[in-house]
Design a protein around this nucleic acid. Structure first.
Lengths: 232, 232
DNA sequence: GCCTTTCTGTGAACGGTGTTCGCTGTGCCA
DNA sequence: TGGCACAGCGAACACCGTTCACAGAAAGGC
């Protein structure tokens, strides 16, 4: 099919083991688990090849025997956490089914906040990632729409879940002093009086009232907008 | 108010010039413009302190006289491109007005694709960024909702515009060989037959048919979901 | 006018990053 | 048993953001 073997291939099409030579001391699952542990503790930024290698007790560059690049390592990590997705059985009510898929993904984002950084960039093309896509498309099965529109809807749904989760997680994901600097500036803007609507909104805002279930209120309407189908 | 002057402050609260000492050879606007040029050409990743400094003909570390960190440089860049926002006058029809604000932001995202990376992370707290927030809140003025809800709606609206733009720009923003590897894997998944819905959606998908005006179809419904107001 | 103070720009340096390369040794296959 | 392909490693390269001490220049106070 392809010339010899030069073509760069996805990690998911490369066998983990060739059979020749000494047995590897580690495997993709263990590496991904160690990297996920690091990311859960300190965010994606604290996942470096050297740190992950150290975490599994290997030399700095041993990881490149298992992974072509850091991006591939992140793909491994994403697939590892998406393996925990618990997609409920379909009921046939497509709005509810799609919402259930979204909620399952949302759960993963809560457990592993760094996943939003990956999911916002592009839809996941890993084994469990395409499982998620399949689940979303299965939920949309009753809808009459061209395949292209459904693909877009599924991809966008994933991105939107990530964005909503990111918005709600924003407070946790930034440092204290950065937040206080932001707030000081906002206070100054409000005090300057040039932004009356912003001032009023902030004044009448109860700081603790994180509104509940954004996903449940938003997603059905978003899907309606994407697929232009009447309520059902 | 604060002890002496140690507290870290936002760059927008620091004067650009104190008056003493030699005149600076550069200014924030010029630095931001050079950085924006770099980002437009090669993405946010190709904006490094050294490259920006070289672009304005300065030594590697001269930038730190104007900016406390790279993150602040990005804030400068974001504000520079948000200065091009052309917010149309309000009409009083809040859905249409909010959509107009979103379209203005969408235009900026098309011209400077790297802005989506910044906007997805958190709402913009720069002079023109709060101008955008003010514009969004002004559009929502006729809506009866608590300030907190309106703030959330405005912030989420910005993030969603960025996510939608990111989805549509995804093809342009990745390298050719990465995309071909992804496609090869997807083809293999479809061929394996374990994902019937995905297979059907891809089979019936016309590759060129980027669906038009996602924003116009999505945003009104999203706002309805956020603010729970009847159509008007 | 001078002097002090304060700021600008610089080059070197530190610790970190992703990644490449050549080496040693090991274990499988023929 | 010989040969070969692979695992792991250490050094190295080219970057990155950031800090620091130091040169020189311009403004303020006297």
């Amino acid at each position: 099919m392809y010339a010899e073997s030069e073509r760069p291939r996805s990690i998911w099409l490369r066998a983990e083991r060739t059979g020749r030579g000494p047995a590897p001391g580690h495997d993709r699952a263990g590496i991904a688990a160690a990297a996920v542990r690091l990311a859960d503790a300190g965010g994606l930024g604290s996942v470096s090849m050297r740190k992950v290698a150290a975490a599994i007790g290997a030399g700095a560059t041993a990881l490149y025997r298992y992974v072509d690049s850091r991006d591939e390592l992140v793909e491994l990590m994403l697939d590892a956490v998406l393996a925990d997705l618990r997609l409920p059985p379909r009921t046939g009510a497509w709005r509810a089914d799609a919402l259930a898929v979204a909620r399952a993904l949302d759960d993963v984002c809560r457990r592993h906040p760094w996943t939003v950084d990956v999911l916002q960039a592009q839809p996941p093309t890993t084994p469990h990632g395409v499982g998620l896509l399949e689940g979303a498309l299965a939920a949309l099965e009753p809808v009459e729409a061209p395949g292209q529109a459904k693909l877009e809807a599924a991809a966008l749904m994933i991105g939107l879940v990530a964005t909503i989760a990111a918005t709600e997680l924003a407070a946790d994901r930034s440092t204290e002093e950065w937040r206080s600097a932001q707030e000081e500036y906002l206070r100054a803007v409000v005090a300057a009086g040039e932004h009356p609507h912003l001032a009023r909104a902030i004044a009448t805002s109860t700081p603790a009232a994180g509104d509940q279930d954004l996903l449940g209120r938003l997603l059905p309407r978003i899907l309606t907008g994407l697929l232009d189908a009447p309520e059902s």
